[in-house]
Nucleic acid binder design. Structure first.
Lengths: 282, 282
DNA sequence: AAATAAGGTTCCAAATAATGGAACAATCGG
DNA sequence: CCGATTGTTCCATTATTTGGAACCTTATTT
């Protein structure tokens, strides 16, 4: 009942749209056959507001019941979905298990680890590492201060590219045509009075390119500011960034300016580390 | 080169074996068609020691090159795998993204959250929440002390059932025939001098049933002890547990005994919370 | 520099798996 | 107890996957 509108829309938008891989000149060819169909279901369940019943999924996916049934059985057998006693589907622990492996071995994360910590020590604020995927930033790691933390919370999270420090910093590395291509897919949602529009974002990109750092001036959330600097592989096969984030009352713009230089330096070190293939032991 | 032996074996063992769902009397029917084949590949990459090249995967999977090629393309298109500039495959960020959603919404975790924190406050030590999947314990959450933490590290991690407090506690809830069924799949690896064998484990299960708590007396790692208590849904459709873990020098057996009662109580509250469907707002 | 090998990719007829309509259970509400 | 709703199974049809072979492309050898 209250689950009846997990929005076919937002599923597609937040879930699948992210799929758009960055270096994909020839878009529109996600012919992944059987797997593609299953992933749509997985997305739907993952991005729903709560567990979904068979009927809900049937309605939203438009698949005939017989087909859907077998698909769900397969997903459950593989542990990608779970079916509880009340007949409701939610995502399976298998995902967590696979992601945990994936995360633990991620090369960028391993290289960046110690630098993030250094930045945290220097600033005392929360440090993030993120990567661009499609028109979103996905956070790969986070080092918080002394607080008792909800660490995982941000990791793996996907945020819009246009109102995060990491997103803007990363964008600034891309050639204009790629930026344009990316931004056509984006709908600019106004999170705060300071959130960018397409035009103001493009204007700021120029500035970011000159400075080598991007600021988030409460553009995503009121009361939250950050400084970020870009990271990339040599051929831009991936781009991302690191940022220092905190409450506006503590992070005045003056203070953020002070941190610009160390952030830029750290980002450069990470980029270099990636390029020369520094393993987990730099 | 150095990747040539990512062990077809350990892939199957650590990866797929975990799939064995608990309440599956009629095993041996993992007919998941296309999806199953792709998951084997995903597992292989996820459980390898590093990125794999096409040829490595081809050799290990035994698939003809043409077939394998298309399968990998599909996995990459869906973001489940990533192909770097050197032609090496590793797991994709899509997994992290999905798992992050999954984790954030997990009902058990949401119910348990505040209780874990309470236990952390009481003991000052690290508290874990885990669930049984096949013959492994998968950690769902972790609350650490004041240290600057590597939070994610343990979450999603799969550990053997027979040498973890949570695993043993959870086992103790199951009827003997199900325990037997589970343990036939298990090879008892000797991690420390105190690690259980099949026989000693069964012996301890009786004791755990009487006490309602399980101890890990340096059975998985020398110098690490823990107390754990079991959690379950009404019909045992899932079983798991919570534990308090720490260094042996601080966690004497006397101290662990003192915590037995609070842990038992907390575990009971969580079980009740689950059963009456307490949402995230208890 | 040419020849050879190894690593990847594309093609296509044959084999296999997915599809979806319909018939069949099970559960629910009155 | 009936009718409605929800979930499951069956099976001929349709679509996808398969795998061998031919084909590129890059390293390696002579």
């Amino acid at each position: 009942m209250e689950l009846s509108d997990y929005a076919t829309h937002s599923v597609k938008v937040s879930g699948r749209a992210i799929m758009a891989t960055l270096n994909n000149e020839t878009r529109e060819r996600r012919e992944t056959g059987t797997l593609g169909k299953l992933m749509v279901l997985l997305d739907m369940v993952a991005y729903a507001d709560g567990p979904l019943r068979f009927t809900d999924i049937a309605a939203a996916s438009g698949q005939p019941r017989g087909t859907l049934h077998r698909q769900l059985v397969h997903l459950v057998e593989e542990g990608l979905l779970e079916l509880d006693a009340d007949g409701r589907y939610s995502t399976g622990l298998r995902l967590l298990e696979l992601a945990s492996r994936s995360w633990a071995r991620n090369e960028l994360r391993l290289v960046a680890e110690r630098y993030l910590r250094e930045l945290q020590d220097l600033t005392g604020e929360t440090v993030h590492l993120g990567v661009i995927r499609g028109a979103s930033v996905i956070y790969l790691d986070k080092v918080e201060g002394r607080q008792p933390v909800r660490m995982y919370s941000q990791i793996g999270n996907a945020s819009p590219i246009y109102c995060t420090g990491v997103g803007k910093a990363a964008l600034s590395l891309l050639p204009d045509d790629r930026i344009d291509a990316l931004l056509t897919e984006v709908t600019f949602q106004r999170f705060t009075p300071a959130t960018h529009t397409h035009e103001t974002l493009l204007a700021e990109i120029g500035e970011i390119r000159r400075n080598g750092v991007a600021f988030d001036r409460e553009e995503h959330e009121v009361g939250i500011r950050c400084v970020a600097a870009p990271i990339s592989s040599e051929n831009l096969s991936f781009v991302g960034g690191i940022s220092v984030t905190g409450p506006a009352y503590r992070l005045t713009m003056e203070r953020l300016e002070e941190w610009a230089e160390p952030i830029r330096q750290t980002a450069n070190r990470i980029s270099t580390g990636i390029r020369i293939g520094l393993g987990p032991r730099p």
